[in-house]
């Protein structure tokens, strides 16, 4: 089998296997898998509203995935996307409420504020890693908790003891009347264009600039890069800052697009953690992240329709979705078997 065929077959087979095993789980627990999957399908593509909401769900996943993937290319494991997203969320919402400016200044201002907040949040672990060799995984995890409770406290201060900042000014909103009209009031917003632009930006930085080359070189081999005369510490910090900026933008999508406010949270949103899976599914490439985000976002959103239309409990739905993603992530195993089969054929 040619490489090309294998490359196409692997994801197809893994999705099919995931669906089959998911179907077995539904059958065993006494639910109709066909009704379940058709509900999933309708939940994703059923009508314009569903499609709009699915894209809405994909938007922050794209950016969270980019964030994790970018740091990964420099050999850094950014688990702090969740925290960077939360500070970005708050920063965007705060700018959206506190200022009253014309749209063409206000909106970019709010978006940049979110990116800067996320970048600043990621700068700390980057700095500690570069200067003191503190492992970024530990620092970023802890920064998540600090972000959660700090933003909660800030929201309380901003809202005078309330739990919600209130709705942002229309001039900072990514809301789209046009999208609303064609998708039957879904929350689809212009943020998807920003997310896609960032995919391009990441590709450009990594593949077309010297900085990107250096970042990747540090990821491949720190010592060799240093020997070649690159400033490893600078690149580590830069990578974390850019990664954090992507995560902050994911927060801006929630603040300026989906929710239009920031509220006190009892726990993490989960988007940052799912971002890790999105990036890894996409092999840390910009194009791969699109694939991962589309898969994650669609399944996550479509799954909401399974209890709604097919009456399958949320718990079973979570298992089925996890199984599908599990099999997709296992693509390597399938590739292995396919290659083995090919080799045997050749041996004959």
């Amino acid at each position: 089998m040619s490489n090309r065929v294998v490359n196409i077959l692997v994801p197809v087979i893994s999705v099919i296997l995931g669906l089959l095993v998911g179907a077995i789980v539904m059958l065993v627990s006494g639910y109709d898998p066909i009704a379940g999957y058709s509900a999933l399908w309708n939940g994703i593509f059923g009508d314009t509203y569903a499609i709009g909401e699915t894209i809405r769900q994909i938007t922050p996943y794209l950016l969270a995935g980019l964030s994790v993937a970018f740091a990964f290319r420099t050999g850094l494991f950014n688990i702090g996307v969740e925290g960077q997203l939360l500070v970005g969320w708050f920063a965007a919402a705060y700018v959206g409420i506190a200022f009253d400016l014309p749209m063409y200044i206000h909106l970019p201002f709010a978006i940049i504020a979110a990116a800067l907040a996320g970048a600043a949040w990621a700068f700390i672990p980057g700095l500690l890693k570069a200067k003191l060799q503190v492992h970024e995984v530990i620092v970023t995890i802890m920064m998540n908790y600090i972000a959660l409770h700090t933003t909660n406290a800030l929201i309380k201060i901003v809202s005078d003891g309330g739990d919600n900042t209130g709705t942002i000014n229309a001039s900072a909103s990514l809301k789209s009347a046009f999208f609303e009209s064609i998708t039957d009031y879904s929350r689809l917003h212009y943020g998807i264009f920003i997310a896609l632009a960032m995919v391009l930006l990441m590709w450009f930085i990594l593949d077309k600039t010297t900085t990107g080359y250096e970042l990747k070189a540090v990821g491949f081999n720190k010592h060799a890069s240093e020997y070649a005369g690159m400033n490893v510490n600078k690149n580590i910090i830069l990578s974390m800052v850019i990664s954090g900026a992507f995560a902050g933008l994911a927060g801006a999508m929630e603040a300026l697009g989906t929710f239009q406010y920031a509220n006190v949270k009892g726990g993490f949103t989960g988007i940052g953690f799912d971002g890790i899976a999105v990036a890894l599914l996409g092999a840390n490439t910009p194009l791969g992240v699109i694939f991962g985000a589309v898969l994650f976002g669609s399944l996550k959103y479509g799954a909401l329709n399974m209890p709604n239309e097919a009456g399958i409990p949320v718990e079973i739905v979570s298992i089925v979705i996890a199984i599908i993603i599990f099999f997709v992530a296992c693509g390597y195993v399938i590739r292995y078997f396919l290659e083995k089969a090919t080799k045997k054929k050749e041996a004959k």
Binding site: L20, I34, A35, S38, A39, L40, W41, N42, G46, K344
Partner: peptide, 30 residues
């Protein structure tokens, strides 16, 4: 041996195709 494996793979794809097909037309059914 390989043929059988390939056959198995094909039938898997076929089975999944049926399920997926069912998904597509399920809209009005549901």
């Amino acid at each position: 041996m390989t043929k059988r494996k390939f056959g198995l793979g094909l039938s898997l794809v076929l089975a999944a195709g049926t399920i997926l097909g069912a998904c597509g037309t399920k809209d009005d059914d549901a």
